[in-house]
Design a protein around this nucleic acid. Structure first.
Lengths: 130, 130
DNA sequence: ATCATATAGGACTCTTTTAGTCCGGTATGG
DNA sequence: CCATACCGGACTAAAAGAGTCCTATATGAT
């Protein structure tokens, strides 16, 4: 369907909110204010933290804060952090191996297309979402 | 996963083969030579025909042929013909309606992103796959 | 100290989408 | 008239995606 997952969608929203407010926010706050499942968002925030885009504080008055400037966080980076695969076809994936590889006649062109799509996602940052 | 479906992948291969060979090909030929399930490809060819990209002839010595020049067939057109949805998020879809629409803070930016991705898919045609 | 608050993370389940199959029907050239 | 090849509905299976539940751990405030 050529669609970004909800994980990425929610991740972008969370990062946008952190950038806009400029303060520490809890996963609960972000979830409630944006109509997102708390459990789901909680996991997404963990992944964003693992990547180094945000930091976290446990306990009372804890929450999440941005580790980077909004213009430093590209959509590509968010996708990479939140999705297992980001290739537009199986043959442009580095982790999968296409069963049709031996007879594949579109591998080359698909790689070029992949690059162009990535370039678009790379050119957009959280700063553009504000 | 931001991935094109197998339907689109196979559709592109079929169109590429028709363009490269410049003759009428049967669904069976295309399927066998490219390691694609015949039943699946048969349906894809029907969809391509419905769209007007190819014509078909039934019966002995029948098959499919291109209706348009390769440079006139964009990837976007193939995606539109073969997939029900092509929007990168639910909020950029014209047919779906996002449950979070009232509180959505990324609708605008997502539309811009969508346009850019579409522009890329629009700029690539079957001619570039040869 | 202890308690309410918040993140950390494993293990599920449910739903949707995608891929692929099976089958009977129709058109057509040899 | 029959083998060939498209037409198209119905179905199944597999995979991915979304969301839930529950327990553990850290920590600031009282």
């Amino acid at each position: 369907m050529l669609r970004l997952s909800k994980r990425v969608e929610y991740g972008l929203i969370a990062l946008q909110q952190l950038a806009k407010r400029g303060t520490v926010l809890t996963a609960r706050e972000i979830a409630d204010e944006n109509g997102i499942s708390y459990d789901l968002l909680a996991k997404i925030m963990q992944d964003l933290k693992r990547d180094g885009m945000v930091y976290s504080h446990q306990g009372v008055r804890g929450g999440y804060g941005l580790m980077l400037a909004p213009q430093q966080i590209s959509v590509t980076r968010v996708v990479d952090a939140l999705e297992t695969e980001n290739s537009i076809t199986e043959c442009t994936s580095e982790t999968e191996c296409c069963a049709r590889e031996a007879v594949c006649t579109i591998k080359g062109p698909m790689h070029k297309l992949q690059e162009q799509v990535e370039q678009v996602l790379n050119s957009v940052t959280i700063a553009q979402l504000l």
